[in-house]
């Protein structure tokens, strides 16, 4: 799968950007040229040799804060995506097999989750359940899990109704074997697409929360927090928001690009699509998950 994604230019760009961001998250605090928390007398300085991106209103080095803050964003978005994956996929597949009662209940739960504005809910939950980014990310993960539920349910439904699965069942295969052998393979590509999208969404949410100053303690550097402190000094440092904003946007863009690339190369028509994608007008279109009886 990875090799086929890398065969597309878009896939190469996406993987390159995400690799850089992942490296920043791992090595960021080490690479930082200054202590991200150390204040100095040179406040709101423009970019220079010692401070490539200048300093903020307390004289702290912006580049160091940017590097040190990458870990929170990356970990947070991964937490959102993995929680959503676990919470969404398992009931999504089981809803096809565990009978109508289970199906009805999970569908209603999904309807409810879709109706909740997740940023508002995340704000509320963090503030009420203790000031930690992890709780918020877990809750947000649950709130965005309907995407995984719908995607895996739609894929499972198609497989479950196909003739080869019917044949396998008639030949005496157990449902568990069918799920492991046939369903899983078909569900994986759409899940990979959803995972890439959700990591992007998680990034926006973590940045929004840290922008509002929720979930992290003040001196700790975050990308959103950097932007928030820039907002007060726009007339002195009009260029200051550029670096953190570009980082956030590039990461989200890379996630979307990766999702598109995975969608393009997965499935039977994948290879042919790779060759002809430039000719296809609808290639950028997002295919909505099949309607599975939701409110929206």
């Amino acid at each position: 799968m990875l090799r086929r994604v890398l065969s597309l230019p878009a896939g190469r760009i996406a993987v390159a950007i995400l690799t850089v961001v992942a490296l920043l998250a791992v090595l960021g605090p080490v690479l930082a040229p200054h202590d991200p928390l150390a204040t100095s007398a040179r406040t709101l300085a423009p970019g220079s040799g010692t401070h490539p991106l200048g300093t903020d209103y307390l004289g702290r080095d912006v580049l160091s804060r940017l590097l040190a803050g990458s870990r929170v964003s990356v970990l947070g978005s991964l937490e959102v995506a993995l929680t959503a994956l676990v919470v969404g996929v398992v009931p999504g597949i089981l809803s096809v097999y565990l009978g109508r009662a289970f199906e009805w209940v999970t569908l209603r739960v999904v309807d409810t989750l879709v109706a909740l504005p997740f940023l508002l809910f995340a704000v509320a939950v963090i503030a009420l359940l203790g000031n930690g980014i992890t709780q918020a990310m877990l809750v947000t993960g649950v709130l965005v899990s309907p995407l995984f539920y719908r995607v895996s349910r739609a894929a499972t439904l198609t497989v479950a109704r196909s003739q080869y699965v019917e044949a396998a069942l008639i030949a005496g295969a157990s449902v568990g074997w069918v799920v492991r052998r046939h369903v899983w393979v078909k569900v994986l590509p759409p899940i990979a697409v959803a995972l890439a999208q959700t990591i992007g969404v998680g990034f926006v949410i973590v940045s929004s929360l840290t922008f509002l100053g929720i979930g992290v303690q003040p001196p700790e550097p975050t990308w959103g927090g950097l932007l928030a402190s820039d907002l007060g000094y726009l007339s002195y440092q009009p260029w200051a928001p550029v670096a953190p904003a570009l980082l956030i946007m590039a990461t989200v863009w890379a996630c979307n690009l990766l999702a598109d690339a995975i969608r393009d190369v997965s499935g039977e028509a994948g290879r042919a699509l790779v060759a002809h994608r430039r000719l296809r007008a609808g290639r950028r279109g997002r295919t909505e998950p099949a309607p599975t009886g939701g409110a929206s």
Partner: peptide, 27 residues
């Protein structure tokens, strides 16, 4: 248009907000 739409779709609301404040209010 597709490029422009992709660009604005990856801008979180607060980034757009800062850009707009910068351009139309401060600038």
């Amino acid at each position: 248009i597709t490029g422009f739409v992709t660009l604005i779709s990856v801008m979180p609301a607060f980034v757009v907000g800062i850009v707009l404040v910068e351009a139309f209010a401060v600038g």
